[in-house]
């Protein structure tokens, strides 16, 4: 009796499961798979949501996972668009070309890499050279006093370096733009996400960290950044990223395998239209082209 009940239950649940999948696959909507950079995931989500109103026949499925993951999925053919916060590596480009899918690159916006310190930290400006001395292997700066700074609440004087895991696009861009491709000094706290970097710096008086400007909050301080050999200290902002005056700003990219067509091409066109560009602006990034937005929140 018990056994037959269990059997019946199992059969029932299997039937229910298969009914679910059937109803999903039964819809005629076109699904565009979009995956990659964690830096871009918030804005990609916003685009996908807004696009529902523009073209309800197309559904955009957005996943994060990192620039490398997105590009790898593009190679495997499991996504239509890969998001990246760094340029494609030569090796990645080569393997895509080898597979007969020459990658197409679309700059969809710009991101300024902001430097974060604790709000109690009196530092107002920092140079690229100083950042390299703090972060690069063999760099001299280990203590705040070496920068001529006394941080209240940081009695140990140690510079707590907050960084990212070694395969994030943000990490790779910082290494390229600030450390001139040198290695990072070992012993940095490697966080798994931009938000974690901001959280940690917010709660740690001795800390310094870096992340996309969009993750900035009122509870961390952003010093302005000076390029070596100039006195001009530029505050990270959407405007300075767009006009190119901020020294550590990077393009945000979308890649497709081969020329995009159909729904994917339409979606990319819409992203690059004024409507799409206003969304990325509202998310705290700079747009790829100057746009006039009706209701800018930044």
């Amino acid at each position: 009796m018990k056994l037959s009940k269990t059997l019946a239950f199992t059969i029932l649940s299997v039937m229910m499961l298969s009914a679910c999948t059937r109803s999903e696959s039964g819809s005629s909507r076109v699904v565009v798979q979009n995956k990659g950079s964690d830096t871009l995931v918030n804005v990609a989500q916003a685009w996908a949501e807004e696009y529902q109103n523009v073209n309800p026949a197309v559904a955009i499925a957005v996943t994060g996972g990192g620039s490398g993951t997105g590009i790898a999925s593009l190679l495997n053919g499991t996504v239509d668009i890969a998001n990246a916060s760094r340029q494609m590596k030569d090796s990645e480009r080569a393997s895509l070309i080898e597979a007969g899918k020459e990658p197409q690159e679309f700059i969809v916006g710009f991101d300024a890499l902001a430097i974060f310190v604790h709000p109690d930290n009196p530092m107002n400006e920092i140079s690229i050279e100083q950042l390299a001395q703090i972060y690069a292997d063999g760099g001299a700066y280990e203590r705040w006093s070496q920068l001529g700074i006394t941080v209240p609440g940081c009695s140990s004087d140690e510079i707590v370096r907050v960084s990212r895991q070694n395969n994030s696009g943000t990490y790779a861009y910082f290494r390229e733009a600030v450390l001139a491709k040198q290695d990072f000094k070992l012993g940095s706290r490697d966080m798994h996400g931009s938000k974690d970097v901001v959280d940690l710096v917010m709660h740690t008086a001795c800390a310094i960290g870096y992340s996309g400007l969009a993750y900035a909050s009122d509870e961390v301080k952003m010093p302005c950044v000076t390029l070596d050999g100039t006195d001009n200290c530029v505050t990270p902002s959407v405007a300075t990223a767009l006009d190119g005056s901020y020294p550590i700003a990077r393009p945000l990219l979308m890649y497709t395998a081969g020329q995009p067509d159909g729904a994917t091409a339409e979606y990319l066109n819409w992203i690059l239209s004024d409507e799409g560009q206003c969304i990325i602006l509202n998310k705290g990034y700079a747009s790829a082209t100057p746009v006039e937005c009706v209701n800018p929140s930044v």
């Binding site: 140990s156 140690e158 706290r189 974690d196 959280d199 940690l200 709660h203 740690t204 008086a205 001795c206």
Partner: peptide, 16 residues
């Protein structure tokens, strides 16, 4: 990450 971090910094006066 959130609670213990602050408690340990306050309690032992360590950088992190």
């Amino acid at each position: 990450l959130t609670i213990m971090n602050g408690i340990i910094i306050d309690l032992f006066d360590v950088p992190i």
